[in-house]
């Protein structure tokens, strides 16, 4: 078993059952990497609709801290994603929810991932981790931005190449 406390483990198991009971639309999968270790999860995020990410699937690695749910889980994109608030190399996500400033235990892994999913649709170029794509967006070149995102999605996230 992991180092997490019994309370945290119970909650994580409950989160897993809840997820399996009612699968939210933004997630394809969410489960521990290894059944015996509840501190390491993996999730597959569905590209939100009506965004250039639509059609792609992104894998996210989730590490549960010891004092979860008092501290936020650590989430990084494993699949490369082109987004101003996601580090192009490490996959680090710039989201206040994941930084402890806005986190509360009332969030679950599923709702947190929902926030990540919405981050894809609503980039914040003012606090970028990927300065290049943020610069494109800041200059208002939405067409170039969408195209870049789509290229990355096709290259890495299994999005079907379109003729559009």
């Amino acid at each position: 078993m992991s180092t997490s406390t019994p309370a945290a483990s119970r909650r994580l198991i409950k989160e897993l059952t809840d997820f399996n009971k009612k699968r939210p639309s933004h997630l394809i999968s969410l489960h521990p990497v290894d059944e015996s270790d509840l501190t390491h999860w993996t999730a597959t995020l569905r590209g939100p609709q009506d965004t250039p990410y639509e059609g792609g699937e992104w894998e996210i690695d989730i590490k549960i801290p010891d004092n979860y749910p008092n501290a936020p889980p650590l989430m990084v994109f494993v699949t490369p994603v082109c987004h101003p608030n996601v580090h192009p190399k490490t996959g680090e996500i710039c989201l206040d929810l994941l930084r402890g400033t806005a986190w509360t235990p009332a969030y679950t892994l599923s709702t947190t991932l929902e926030s990540v999913s919405q981050l894809l649709g609503h980039p914040e170029p003012d606090s970028p981790l990927n300065v290049d794509i943020a610069a494109v967006l800041r200059h208002g070149d939405r067409v170039a931005y969408d195209a870049l995102v789509r290229v990355w999605a096709v290259m890495y996230a299994g999005k079907k190449g379109t003729t559009a």
Binding site: L95, D96, L97, A102, W103, T104, A106, Y107, T111, E114, S115, Q118, L119, G121, H122, E124
Partner: peptide, 19 residues
């Protein structure tokens, strides 16, 4: 909050978690 896609993402943070 999740039902308001018009809001920028960071405002998803509480004060209104889906609970």
């Amino acid at each position: 909050p999740s039902s308001e896609p018009s809001q920028p993402l960071r405002t998803l943070a509480p004060p209104s978690p889906p609970l």
